[in-house]
């Protein structure tokens, strides 16, 4: 059994203040609070694709979600705590999904069930497929598998319980819904010529300007196939568009593209690491 590493969650910006750590009142209160919350996570009755069938099978008598206090599947987002994104998210469907998410009351959780919801899955290359719901919504737990078996889904739900358990009332980062004012809704994507995320308006505008100026505006073809993070900067000359791309895509590559010195350093580091690995392998043999 893979042990979940809760330390993954602890990289918060607001660590628990020293004087609050070990505060008995808060921790016990958190404990009760979390216990009651995690035992009544009501999922939304909401199926997308193949994984939904496994989700229903999980809710049915053999695996029985009610053992976790989750049998109350609410069709209305207003009464739901957990959105199990069970299946491929298409561009056409992500609009209602974001709308549903916005309508869920805090605290709300998102579980990406299956490869498709996590990262596009086998349909990732499809023109109408959103490659992972986390492009639009914050996901709490990912359950890999195509589809995850009911037991794998149950494991993911237990992982969610643990996550809830790990949250502390003393840490405002864990419980932002007790902060001031309502939380900002996720902007709803627009179905234009392709799906448009309002948060990406700037980059789309920049790309459109490039296009108007007759510059290459977005990659269609795969460039050099040997594009490791380190080697990227040394390969073919990069257009402004590509640089812009890297800014949103991968931080190290973007840094490398902006700063040749850093790129060289990264490349050296990569080479050194490779050498080290090779050495280790030889030794192990």
């Amino acid at each position: 059994m893979t042990d979940l590493d809760l330390r993954e969650l602890q990289g918060t910006e607001f660590p628990v203040p020293a004087d609050l750590q070990g505060n008995v009142a808060i921790t016990s209160l958190s404990k009760i609070y979390n216990w009651s919350r995690k035992n009544s996570v009501w999922p939304m009755l909401f199926g997308l694709a193949c994984c939904a069938i496994e989700m229903i099978a999980t809710a049915a008598s053999r695996y029985d979600l009610s053992r976790f206090g989750m049998e109350v599947m609410r069709a209305s987002p207003r009464q739901a705590d957990l959105m199990i994104v069970s299946g491929t998210v298409t561009k056409k469907m992500v609009v209602p999904i974001v709308r549903l998410y916005n309508q869920m009351p805090e605290p709300k959780y998102v579980l990406a069930m299956g490869a498709c919801a996590s990262g596009g899955g086998p349909f990732k290359e499809g023109y109408n497929v959103v490659s992972g719901i986390d492009k639009y919504l914050p996901v709490d737990v990912y359950a890999p598998g195509c589809p995850p078996t009911p037991q794998a889904l149950l494991f993911a739900l237990i992982a969610l319980h643990r996550k809830i358990d790990g949250q502390s009332l003393a840490n405002m980062d864990d419980v932002p819904w007790y902060g001031v004012g309502p939380s900002d809704p996720t902007p709803i994507p627009i179905l234009g010529p392709d799906i448009i995320d309002p948060r990406q308006m700037d980059i789309i505008r920049r790309q459109a300007e490039l296009a108007a100026a007759g510059l290459p505006y977005g990659k269609r073809e795969v460039p050099d196939l040997v594009l490791t993070a380190g080697a990227a900067s040394t390969s073919a000359p990069r257009t402004a568009a590509e640089k812009a791309a890297d800014k949103v895509a991968s931080a190290p590559a973007a840094a490398a593209a902006d700063d040749p010195e850093k790129a060289a350093r990264l490349a050296k580091r990569e080479a050194a690491l490779a050498r080290k690995r090779a050495r280790q392998q030889q030794q192990s043999e």
Partner: peptide
Amino acid sequence: AEELNPYGKNVQYPA
């Protein structure tokens, strides 16, 4: 595949 796309998403827009 996201890394090869300027938008980081499975999208493209006409010129």
